[in-house]
């Protein structure tokens, strides 16, 4: 056990020494890895905040049900009953024809036109707010269903915005995933090269160790520590970058959020995000090391 610890301790120490022996080149590799990881991590954060802002306030899609003008009190109540039992709705309210008339009469210019008409030209209407988790397709289905209800003349769904948002988010998610994939490959490539250089500086040591009976595991261990430590440090760097950028963008983003009614606040990276980021970086560092050693340690 203590021998096992000693072997790992030696490998870890070696890796740390190699990382600090050429600080400038280590720093440059770390910067490259950090930036490569910060881009998809930042994209993910942006996406989530965009989603939150969009979902708050005006972004919520609404369904407007217009009754026919001749619908009586009973018909309107019947529709209200039906809406009350709709699980897909968060809330709804009645905008009575009297209310609408009063609103338009209050507007300059409209008053004369309306008073010239024989009666109240406006129908009763309902404004219904669907639940947040409904997809654009589900909203469309709801609209179709409502329009078949008795005495409902027309149902409007201001869904174009919601659909565009959906498409945009989808696009954003694919973009972030592709970015993560490409830059992850970049990280593997960076590790591959740095490990190759480390192997080249250690050739005589590797040869002698082999002659003295070192296993592949013994020879590879310090390089694995080097590669995964570099990945981990790069992940931590990416975290710092994203956190710094988020801090700088907090004020303008909150201003933007304030323009909508929801008043969303900027979400930062959660502990789980950070854990995933660091784990991803470490795993890619390990992978780059494994590929490089497989290529460069076979004599």
């Amino acid at each position: 056990m203590s021998a096992w610890l000693a072997q790992h301790g030696r490998a870890l120490l070696w890796a740390l020494r190699r990382l600090t022996v050429a600080p400038l080149s280590t720093l440059l590799s770390l910067l490259a890895i950090s930036v490569a990881l910060a881009l998809p991590a930042g994209g993910q954060l942006l996406l989530r905040n965009g989603l939150q802002i969009a979902k708050s306030g005006a972004a919520t899609p609404e369904l407007s049900l217009f009754m026919s003008v001749d619908a009586d009190r009973k018909a309107v109540d019947a529709i209200a009953q039906r809406l009350k039992h709709q699980e897909a709705l968060k809330e709804f309210r009645l905008v009575s024809r009297g209310e609408t008339l009063a609103r338009f009469q209050a507007r300059p210019g409209f008053a004369e036109v309306i008073s010239a008409l024989p009666g109240n030209p406006f129908p009763d209407a309902f404004v219904a707010v669907p639940r947040d988790d409904l997809s654009a397709a589900a909203l469309e289905k709801l609209r179709a269903e409502f329009s078949h209800w008795p005495k409902v003349e027309q149902v409007q769904l201001d869904s174009a915005w919601a659909r565009r948002l959906d498409a945009l988010l989808h696009l954003g998610r694919i973009g972030v995933a592709l970015l993560a994939l490409m830059l992850g490959l970049g990280l593997v490539a960076i590790t591959f090269t740095t490990i190759r250089l480390q192997v080249l500086t250690q050739l005589s040591e590797i040869e002698v160790s082999r002659l003295l009976g070192a296993t592949d595991a013994f020879i590879g261990r310090p390089f694995y520590y080097f590669g995964t430590l570099q990945g981990l440090a790069g992940g931590a760097g990416a975290w710092l970058i994203v956190a710094a950028v988020a801090m700088a963008m907090r004020a303008p983003l909150e201003e933007l959020a304030g323009l909508y009614e929801g008043g969303a606040t900027l979400q930062s990276l959660t502990a789980i995000d950070v854990a995933i980021l660091l784990g991803f970086a470490t795993a890619l560092g390990w992978l780059g090391t494994a590929l490089s050693l497989g290529r460069h340690l076979r004599d």
């Binding site: 021998a3 000693a6 030696r10 160790s209 003295l212 009976g213 070192a214 013994f218």
Partner: peptide, 10 residues
């Protein structure tokens, strides 16, 4: 070095 390779406690 040979002792490190053989895994002797330090």
């Amino acid at each position: 070095l040979p002792l490190a390779i053989a895994g002797y406690p330090p």
